[in-house]
Structures are given as structure tokens and as C-alpha cells.
Write a protein that binds this DNA or RNA. Structure first.
Lengths: 330, 330
DNA sequence: TTGTATGCGTTATCAC
DNA sequence: GTGATAACGCATACAA
């Protein structure tokens, strides 16, 4: 637990010189450098970053707020964020908000309290104007999900186009009675995916039947439940587009429990391409987001903001990709 | 970006008084308290924790090092850790090590640099003696996986007994030709699970056939590969115990691709009870670890250490549970 | 090239 | 009940 003072004394130099050695300042003679290094080693000295952070008024930490790490969708994005962060000498603080406003506020306080230099939001629960306020003072990037009205940067895919792609795929393999399992929430992605779904139908002169739209909460059980609703009705779709893979997997489970088969009786498309999508039987057709890249680009954008490179919010959109697997084989 | 100085000036009091108000010291008159609160509000003051942390020489942050958040096994454990941490005014810093020694070292440096008050390890890659060294200086808890030789606390289940339970279950429903899909690594849990597997067989006078043991890396693909090895041999087991759920799911996929059925042709047991275990078709029989409790107990143990309550390493074992599902139905 | 001195924002000890 | 002031460990402007 030695301090810089003790190292200085041991090496017979001033603390300033020790500090220079630690920070690899060029203007220090090799001889004194070696002496300091020896003292550091002897005393087993580790710099106390609390002192440095206060002095420099920065922590080289970034906050990453996500609803929950249990959603496998986030893992590759976080990996991208981390890779870029580490490459630039930043550390990442991953925080589960559980989509809880109070919890999220506590974490945002870390930013206000200077314990982090910037923040990446995944699914902000905070109100639009509050977010704008924070983004006006601190570096902020929204990833995937974002508040349309907030003055804050974001990186995402075009969800409307992605949903359109998915439904066009179903139509192209012959389906015309297509269900949608969506979610009841105020996320921008949800609204956009519903729009994409409708556009694809309308374009092909298929009437959008409101009873063909069910709602879940992104989770497995809710997908299962939604599909059971279809199956117990007299109006069963021949294909279903789900706005999350977990719901799609739940839907498939319901279909099979009913003794029907995927894709021959009902085809299913998911969204996100989580790791389990290709493990499942049948493997799942889905929309892949460029997850790793989303993370990289978000972190790069945050770095630019932290270095004060610009202050106008940026909107960046990356490309999605349709991945056709067993669940929609002809 | 006001400081405590400015608040003091605005309220017409000393910084000491402002500090007392912030820290809810009882000995401050209601009148001055209100004045200070008003000044804080007016200036939109947020305490700078960098200053406080330096002064207090603590951060009220704990480090949680795990291989990767993409393993769904960790999510509920982390939830337990967080709940206890938050209840006690600590924040949690989640860090992916990717099982990389260098990466892990960088994070351990955060501890040495005083940016965290303690650490919970999930699968330490660090050498035993290095870990002992760190645990001698800083609060450390190992969760689930641990270094047997290291002088550091740990919280885990009895993996030998858990594996024994799983294999006994297979034997009890009539299997005698039982495969093991394990991993080639030096984790204590791996060795213990292999031992439990063998004890269950030996107790029932079943010869332990080395060719019945295959190795993967916990992942889906490796389980699939291992099962293909069995299936292409002339010695196919009637049941397989996998030391991870993902490998079990991979194994099932291989079995079905071969045109065989689970559990009628080959029964499969996994380990961990990850969320997807019950979603999969067939749903997976597995050993459930008390994940949330493992997290809670680990964090509680760390809190005790951080408060200097004791310094002898503790070993705590929690109970496992066999969850029988479709993959081993008679 | 090196040392001295100052301050980052906070808390806590000591007077009053 | 309140205020002055000294730390906490470090980085840096300025002197030498």
C-alpha cells in the first residue's frame, strides 16, 4: 500500500519525478528512471487511481446500461463495445437496469458524480427531455433502441426495413395469411417493425387483419401464449413473424405441442439472431442485427463525444440481414 | 458543475456544513439545512465522488469477473449479487474476462488501484498463489468455480454429489450404458463431476468404460460433436450425462439429426438449468444450481470481508437440485 | 533534467 | 451548531 511519496523517498527523488516515470514522460534521465522503477518494484507500489482521477477529473470508465444481461442478444454488442473501449484505454461498467426507472437513475447518478466519463444506453426508460438534458452535459450514445424526441446520438438498424424484409420473405415462399407477434411497449423499434410488417402486406394487396396481431413481452412464455391464442381460434395463420427470437421459439413450442409441424404447417420468423436461434430444432429463420458492429460503432461514437469532437447528436444506421433456416423452409 | 465550495458560498455557510447536510449529519440546525438544500437545488449541485472516494479511500464498487455474459448461467447469479450489493449501498462492475489471463489481470489492477473495494471471481484464470496473494490484501470471493489450493473464500455447490445425483437418476430409470460429456480443463467442478459420475456407476457395479467419456468445451457445438462421435461408433450409450446444458442441447440436436429420438433412444441430462433448458424441445432434465442464492451468499460474504469482519477464508456450499423433464422421461 | 508548490473536491478533526 | 483547515494521492505549472 505504498504511496508515490514513499517511492520518491526510497528512490531519493521528488514525487514529481516518480509521477513522470509512471506516466512515461520522455524528459527523465535513464538513470533516475531506473532508480524509480527499482523503488516501485521494491515497495510493490501500485498507483492509487483515486488520486489521479480527482486530479485529472476523469475516470476512463464508460457506463453501459442494459435491461438485463440474461437477454443473449446483448452479449456480442457488449463485446464490440469492450473491444473498442479497451483499445482506447477505457474500461466498461456493465449495469443491469431491469428496465427499472429508479435503478437506471442510480446508475445515471454515477455519471453525474463523475464516476464515469460517458454512457451507452440500450433501452432507456428515462423520459425524453431528461435524456436530452443529460446528453447536453455528458457524452451519451443510445444503441439499438432510442428515444426519437431526445437530442442524443444513436446507433441502430432500420427496423422498419428489417421487418419488411422478414415478411416479404414469408410472402415470397407462398404465405398470405401471416401473423405478427409484437409487444405492447413504446419502443421505437416495435412501432417500426409493425409498420414494416404492414407495408409488406399492403404492397402485396394483403389485407391487414388486426386479429392477426398478438402481443407478448419479448420472452419465451409470452410467445408460447400468443401462439396458443392463434391455435385456439378459427383463424390460424400459415406463418408468423415474431419481433424477438425468444418469442419465436416459444411460438414453435406451442405449435409442436399442438401436434403441428414447423415449417410445413406454420412457418416462423424471429428477430435478432440470438445464439440459440441456430441451436434450436428447427433452427430459426431470423433477422440478424450486426451486433458486434453496433457495439463497436456506438463506442467509437462515444469516444468522439468524450474527446469533444462534436456536439451535434448523430444518427447512424447499420445494415440488417435475413438469415433463412429450417423454420421457413419451403 | 458546481462544487461544494460554490454551494457553501451561495448558502452563506462553510463547506463543512454543506458536507454535513449532504451526509445527513444530525447536528445541523433545520434552518441552515434548508438554506443549504436550497443552494444545492439552485446550483444543480451533484457531489463529485472522485473527491469523496479519495478522502474516504473507498469506492463502494465491487468487481464481478466472469468469463462472458453470453453464458446465460451467470445472469441469475449476478442478479443475486446486485440485489445484495444495492441493498448495502454498493455498485457492481460487471467485467467479461473472456477467460483471458491478460484481460483478467487488467481488471484485477482496478482493485489494486483502489477503483473497487472487492472482487467476486467466477472462473479465475489466475494462478493459485497469485490469487492467495490478492486475497491476502483485498476482499475476494470465488463463486461456483474456485481454486482449491488458493487461500481465498468460495461459495459453490458440491459438484461431485450433483453429478452423482444426475447419474443415479439415469440408472434408476433403467440405464446401464451411460456416456459422459465432460470438458478438458482444470476446473475443480469438472474433476468433481467426473468423480460423481464414476462413483454412481461403480456403486451399481457398472464398469467405467473410458471410451464412454468424451470432451467438449461447455458449448453447443462441442456437445453436438461429442455426440456424433458416439453415434459413429459401434458402442452407443443409451443415456448421456453432460456437464453443461448447452452441450446437452448440442447432443440432442446430433441425436435427432441421426433420426433417433430423445429420450426413447437416448436419454440426456444436462447441468446448470439455464433458462433455455425448459424452452428446448424436448425440455431438458438437468441439475439446477441455486443460482440466485449463490449470488446473494457470495455478495454477503464479500460484504463481511470488506467490513473486516474476519480474515480466514470461508467455504460455503449450497444445495443442488435434480430437475426431471422430457429428455429423461421413461 | 529535476524539485517545489499548488490544487483537484471532499470529509473529518479540532476549535470556538 | 458552525467554521477553519488539514489531509487523501496524484499531476503539473513554474522555478531552478
Amino acid at each position: 500500500m505504498a504511496t508515490i511519496q514513499e517511492v520518491a523517498k526510497e528512490a531519493g527523488v521528488s514525487v514529481a519525478t516518480v509521477s513522470r516515470v509512471i506516466n512515461e514522460s520522455p524528459k527523465v534521465s535513464p538513470k533516475t528512471r531506473d532508480a524509480v522503477l527499482a523503488a516501485i518494484k521494491k515497495l510493490n507500489y501500485e498507483p492509487n487511481l483515486l488520486g489521479r482521477n480527482l486530479r485529472l477529473m476523469q475516470t476512463r470508465m464508460v457506463l453501459v446500461l442494459l435491461p438485463t444481461i440474461s437477454n443473449p442478444f446483448y452479449a456480442p454488442i457488449v463485446k464490440g463495445i469492450e473491444d473498442i473501449a479497451h483499445k482506447n484505454g477505457f474500461n466498461v461498467m456493465l449495469c443491469n437496469t431491469n428496465s427499472d426507472v429508479a435503478r437506471e437513475r442510480v446508475y445515471i447518478d454515477l455519471l453525474k458524480n463523475r464516476l464515469a466519463d460517458g454512457v451507452i444506453f440500450f433501452a432507456p426508460t428515462i423520459e425524453d427531455d431528461k435524456l436530452s438534458e443529460i446528453a447536453a452535459t455528458f457524452p451519451v450514445v443510445q444503441c439499438c433502441e432510442y428515444k426519437k424526441e431526445a437530442r442524443a446520438s444513436h446507433v441502430a438498424i432500420n427496423n422498419e426495413a428489417a421487418a419488411y424484409t422478414a415478411v416479404r420473405h414469408l410472402i415470397s415462399i407462398g404465405h398470405r395469411k401471416i401473423g405478427l407477434i409484437s409487444c405492447k411497449n413504446s419502443f421505437i423499434s416495435t412501432a417500426e417493425r409493425e409498420e414494416g410488417f404492414k407495408r409488406a402486406l399492403i404492397e402485396q394487396n394483403i389485407i391487414v387483419d388486426p386479429t392477426m396481431i398478438k402481443y407478448g413481452n419479448y420472452g419465451f412464455s409470452s410467445g408460447l401464449r400468443a401462439m396458443k391464442h392463434y391455435l385456439s381460434s378459427d383463424n390460424i395463420p400459415t406463418a408468423v413473424f415474431c419481433i424477438s427470437d425468444s418469442m419465436a421459439i416459444g411460438a414453435i413450442k406451442a405449435i409442436r405441442e399442438k401436434g403441428l409441424r414447423v415449417p410445413s404447417d406454420i412457418a416462423v420468423v424471429g428477430f435478432d439472431d440470438i445464439t440459440f436461434a441456430h441451436m434450436f430444432s428447427p433452427s430459426l429463420t431470423t433477422i440478424a442485427q450486426p451486433k458486434y458492429d453496433l457495439g463497436c460503432v456506438s463506442m467509437e461514437l462515444l469516444l468522439k463525444q468524450m474527446s469533444g469532437e462534436f456536439d451535434n447528436p448523430q444518427s447512424i444506421y447499420l445494415k440488417h440481414e435475413l438469415i433463412v433456416r429450417e423454420s421457413t423452409l419451403r
